[in-house]
Amino acid sequence: MTSLDTFRMGLLDPGYPVPKGLENGTRQAAGNRYDVYRNNVTHSLIAALRTAFPLVYKILGGKSFDTLAPAFVRAHPPRSPLMMHYGAEFPQFLADMPELSKFGYLADCAKLDLAFRASYHAADTVPIDPTVLQSLPLDVLMQERMLLAASTRILRSNWPIFDIWRFNNVADAPKPTPQAQDVLITRPEFDPQPYLLPMGAAFWLNRLGMGDTFEQAYDAALAATPEFDLSKSLIVAFQSAAFCKVQGF
């Protein structure tokens, strides 16, 4: 085992003894000087987690969040120097915690936070002008394929995830009531925005994102969700600037 292997052993384990071979400036054992590195590693990862999951942090409160965060950072240290991607395992970690079992929606809140962050750092794209599509004859339009903007994220939830986000971020927003909700996140400029999707629209958008024509995606969405409303779904897609290009245009 090398010096650095030994040094690593205690960094994320507060019960691990201070590694041998570390000294202060007078050749005495390093003692709590090693704890500076322990604290730096653990606290910097917890701070990154707080920044990355603002909705979960707000719902749990700082004290509860900081109580559970050390267990996560010790079990799941980052795998990349790109801290903007840290925390992909956090939703499942929350879902697996027995003490959070009555907060079943928290894992989806963490997924929503992840989606916001991914959207924030996604590539810039130019949204399509809706009038370009409106000018097309319907039969032509239905054979077109759309590209979703790189910042687009779609989250399907069995919880009222959009209302939970609003309740925690918008003044006087109503208290969420039990229902499943699908959310579209896009980034019109620099700040990602959430949009509540009508029934079936998440499926429809996903099909468009996979390369279906309008007609194929519409038929599939209608088959999956008889209540699917194309015009309502198109309005949300255009309002949110989710489409960035029509192939051939």
Binding site: R8, S44, P78
Partner: peptide, 17 residues
């Protein structure tokens, strides 16, 4: 400094012998 060990990124500037 070092900050990567195995597959982990430890998000700190750690000392060297």
């Amino acid at each position: 400094a070092w900050s990567t060990h195995g597959s982990e990124f430890l998000n700190d500037l750690l000392p060297l012998p």
